[in-house]
Structure formats: structure tokens, C-alpha cells
Computed example of a mutant assay.
Amino acid sequence: MRQLIHAVTDGAGLPDHIQTKLLSLFPEIDAVCIREKGLSAQQLFTRLTGLIERGMPPEKLILHSSPDLVPFLPVLGVHFSEYDERLTPFKQKHPDKLAGRSVHSVSSAQKAEADGADYLYFGHVFATSSKKNLPGRGLDALRKVTESVAIPVIAIGGIDQSNIPAVREAGASGVAMISAFFNRKV
């Protein structure tokens, strides 16, 4: 089975150089999770419509915590944080859209699956600069989560080319990467 590859934006507000990077990446990845918590809904909508006008296929976009924009943008779906209870009503209203959730334990993974999630992000698997001073949960924790649910589990956190084989061996259906794609020095 082919490994899923998701890019997750870095929260920098979708500046032009990140948009340009996204436009170069989309042929090689399965989805882009737009994680821009610092933008208002209007700012996010404006930047996304501009990105789509520049050639980004909207069916590759997953909106992080922004289900209210789905009626206005033909995106792939929405990704929810671990304790966001909007996943179930979103999935009921939009059964044709993907709904994902971030999880950090077996119990959270099982709850997300029961709530109707189509996929999970589990992490952070390895130490990462986005979670300073917090050790990674590790491959054993990833394996336990992948074995506890029937939906795809996508590993996130400190993922790069060197450790993708290990997360796949631990049962991950794919990887989600932030800094591997969006290093701010670009």
C-alpha cells in the first residue's frame, strides 16, 4: 500500500513564499492541511481563494479547525483538534468530506473513530521544534494506536525522510510533515 503524504502549514499566515511552496508540492503529496490558527476566517478565506486562483487544486486542501468555510470552498475536508467536538456534526452535515482528528493516545484514537473520523494524525512521534521540551511519544505508542483502530493513522511530529520507514513499520498509513516542507529559511 502506498504511504499517504500530508503537508501541514506552519502557522506563518500563508505568506507568498509558503503559497509558492504549496504550488510546487501539490503534485507530489496527497493533501495539505492548512493549519493557520492566527488568521481570521475572512483572512483564511481570502488567502485560500487566492491560492486556488494561482492553481492549487482545492480537492487537496484540508482546513484545520475551520469547518465553517466548507460551504464556500470545494476542499477535501476538515481536520479537528483532539477535543474539538464539532467532528461528528460536521461529518453528519458533510458526509462527502474527509474529517480527521489529532490524537495522542489509544483512547483518543478510539473515540475519534467512534465520532466518525475518516483518519487520524497521531503525534508527536519524535522530538520536534514545534513541541519544544516535550519528548516524542515514540514508535511503540504509534503502533498501539494503529492497532487499536480500523481507520488510517498518519504519523506527525519530527517526521523526515530518515524515519518514514520506521513509522510505516509501526503501522502508520502515512506521514504528515511541517518543517520538512516549510522550513522558514526557504
Score class of each variant (00 low, 15 high):
D10A: 05
G11Q: 04
A12S: 14
G13D: 14
L14P: 11
D16A: 14
D16N: 11
T20A: 13
T20Q: 14
L23V: 12
L23E: 14
P27I: 04
K37N: 12
A41F: 10
A41C: 13
Q43S: 14
F45R: 15
F45T: 06
L48F: 07
T49C: 11
T49Y: 05
G50W: 05
I52G: 05
M56Q: 07
P57C: 07
K60S: 04
K60M: 03
H64F: 04
V70R: 10
V70M: 12
L73N: 13
P74C: 12
V75N: 09
V75I: 13
V78K: 08
H79P: 03
D84P: 09
D84K: 06
F90W: 05
K91P: 10
K93Y: 04
S107D: 15
S108R: 13
A109G: 02
Q110S: 08
E113Q: 15
A114C: 05
G116D: 06
L120S: 02
Y121E: 03
V125A: 14
A127P: 04
T128Y: 04
T128W: 05
K131V: 02
D140E: 14
D140K: 04
V149N: 02
V149R: 01
V153F: 10
G157H: 02
D160L: 00
I164P: 00
P165S: 03
R168N: 11
A170N: 12
M177S: 00
A180C: 02
F182I: 09
